[in-house]
């Protein structure tokens, strides 16, 4: 007699988990794609590497994942970083301009990667400086580079779209490591590093404490300034990596379009994953689920033969449904209706 009750209680607890609805939406969407278009779920080995729609989704979700991981930490401190899209453009512009000047060798490609990442790290540090030392509101501080960053990227490329050829650099975005797409490997490694860094050390807890109550955490001896600064630097670094992973396959530094509006994608995957915008507790697993969901929605639009004119509407609908389902207040309102029904059933 207790068993069914336990199941119900467990189910209820499960649906209250912050990841339940995003995961449910993701699974439902993938299964719907599979049902609508047979073969969607197939993963085969072609040319000794993995091939199939799920592989494509994994590869493409790496860009929002990298952006989201950095954004998640920033948001946990109660801040926001609007500059990530522009940082993507800058780091790619710097890397490709370097390759353009130095030829296509593997060593050059590696140097270009490092230079691009260092540039991104410097920009992130600059954001952190504005936020912590100068005390500028994160929204405004990072908006400076969101607006001006593309101008910087244009300066680097001299207003042109620098197109080069470097197989080694290109493989960062389109190559394979032991049959697995390189971006997926990069995403997994970065995720593991960030997870270990924030969950196996006190770093994550300290960051959360700043987001929950900065003054209280200061009184408790947390050095907020240094931590926040670090978090913005990491966010910038990851945005630079995202720009290179996203742009490397094209080998074209398009300062106007690379990473355009991606800051909104980053914020969306963080929020979809159950991290609140006002700071405090954050969920890295949520970022993973959020970026997979976002990428799957974009793909489902084509699989379902949805006309391009209404794709934004379809995206919005899915996201609204997920947010509504995850809303505690709405759930309480709905469960508030349930006892009434139970009474009616009893009588």
């Amino acid at each position: 007699m207790n068993a069914p009750n336990n199941v119900v209680a467990n189910l209820r607890r499960l649906t209250r988990h912050h990841l339940f609805w995003p995961v449910a939406a993701l699974v439902a969407l993938v299964l719907a794609c599979g049902a609508y278009s047979p073969g969607f779920l197939d993963v085969t080995v072609a040319d000794s590497h993995l091939f199939g729609q799920p592989v494509d989704i994994l590869r493409q979700s790496v860009t929002p994942l990298l952006l989201g991981l950095g954004m998640c930490l920033v948001i946990a401190t109660g801040g926001i970083d609007l500059s990530v899209g522009a940082v993507m453009a800058i780091s790619l512009a710097v890397s490709l301009t370097f390759i353009d000047a130095n030829g296509p060798g593997t060593a050059t490609a590696l140097t270009a990667l490092v230079i691009g990442l260092i540039t991104a790290l410097v920009i992130g540090t600059f954001n952190g400086f504005l936020v912590t030392v100068l005390g500028i509101q994160p929204f405004i501080a990072t908006m400076i580079l969101m607006v001006a960053g593309r101008g910087v990227a244009m300066l680097v490329t001299k207003g042109q779209i620098t197109t080069t050829a470097s197989p080694a650099f290109k493989s960062i975005g389109s190559g394979f490591v032991l049959g697995v797409p390189t971006p997926v490997v990069i995403g997994a490694v970065v995720l593991a590093i960030v997870a270990v860094l924030v969950r196996r050390t006190a770093l994550g807890m300290l960051v959360e404490s700043i987001g929950i109550n900065r003054e209280a955490s200061r009184l408790a001896g947390v050095r907020a300034t240094g931590l926040i600064w670090t978090v913005y630097a990491i966010c910038g670094l990851l945005a630079g990596l995202a720009g290179i992973v996203y742009g490397a396959p094209t080998m074209a530094a398009d300062a106007n379009n690379i990473g355009l509006m991606k800051e909104l994608d980053a914020i969306m995957v963080v929020v979809l994953g159950g991290t609140k915008l006002d700071g405090g507790k954050f969920s890295l697993a949520g970022v993973v689920v959020g970026s997979l969901l976002l990428t799957t929605i974009e793909r489902a639009v084509i699989i379902f033969h949805i006309p391009s004119q209404v794709t934004p509407l379809f995206k919005a609908l899915v996201l609204i449904v997920v947010c509504l389902a995850a809303s505690e207040r709405l759930r309480r309102a709905v469960t508030g209706l349930l006892p009434v029904r139970r009474l009616q059933e009893a009588s």
Partner: peptide, 14 residues
């Protein structure tokens, strides 16, 4: 290029 590639990947399936 990047979004054109993604769209065609999906289109080959759809």
């Amino acid at each position: 290029r990047a979004e054109g590639k993604a769209a065609v990947e999906a289109a080959l399936q759809a």
